[in-house]
Amino acid sequence: MAKEVTGSGRRSEQIETLRAADHDRQQIADQLKVALDEGRLSLHEYDDRVAGAYAARTYAELLVLVQDLPRPGLNATEVRARRTADARRESRRIPVALLVLWTIWASLAAVNLVVYALVRKTVNYYVYPWPAWMLVPGAALTAVTIGVQVIRHQQRRY
């Protein structure tokens, strides 16, 4: 519900400022009922929030009612596991600068290999395998990438 919507001829506006429909109010009420059944809300809280849901005019007023609740069916262990998995995934991501360097190296290596293959195919004598020298910057780039990942892993532990 929090993405931008653009209308024809109108400037873009946040979806939270749009008016909610009866179906939207019913969905929020259903989500609150699930939270009550799971024991996340007391009966008094549930009554207050459902009344607020049916009185809400915009999506923003509806979203406030469920912002502190996880999606239905999730328990604390699953939420914690997802956060841990997201943190691991984020720590394994390679920084953009290294991705650019890897892309440059791979394109240069590919060009060198293609030129070498064409030269080797067109001449009848021994051709020095110069693309092997591309392994040197590749090894250096590998070492830098591993070093960055190790440093990021150590920083995450502290």
Rank of each mutant, 00 (worst) to 15 (best):
R19W: 09
R19G: 05
R19S: 12
A20C: 11
D22S: 15
H23W: 10
Q26D: 10
A29R: 02
A29E: 04
Q31L: 12
V34R: 04
A35D: 01
L36H: 04
D37V: 05
E38N: 02
R40A: 08
S42V: 02
S42L: 03
H44M: 15
H44I: 15
Y46F: 14
D47G: 11
D47C: 13
D48V: 06
A51F: 08
G52T: 00
A55V: 09
A55L: 10
A56Q: 06
A60W: 01
V64P: 01
V64N: 02
V66L: 00
Q67E: 15
D68F: 06
D68S: 11
P70A: 01
P70Y: 04
R71P: 10
L74C: 12
A76T: 07
T77P: 02
V79N: 07
R80P: 06
R80N: 13
R82L: 14
T84K: 08
T84H: 11
A85M: 15
R88A: 09
R89K: 08
E90G: 08
E90C: 03
S91V: 07
R92I: 07
R93Q: 10
R93K: 13
P95N: 12
V96F: 12
A97F: 13
L98D: 00
L98N: 03
L98E: 04
L99Q: 10
V100R: 13
L101N: 00
T103C: 10
A106E: 02
S107T: 15
L108N: 03
V111D: 06
N112F: 08
N112E: 12
L113D: 04
V115P: 04
A117W: 10
A117Q: 09
V119W: 08
K121L: 11
N124H: 15
N124A: 15
Y125A: 15
Y125K: 10
Y125V: 08
Y125R: 13
Y125D: 15
P129M: 04
P129I: 07
W130D: 04
P131E: 07
P131W: 01
A132P: 03
W133Y: 15
G138V: 05
A139P: 10
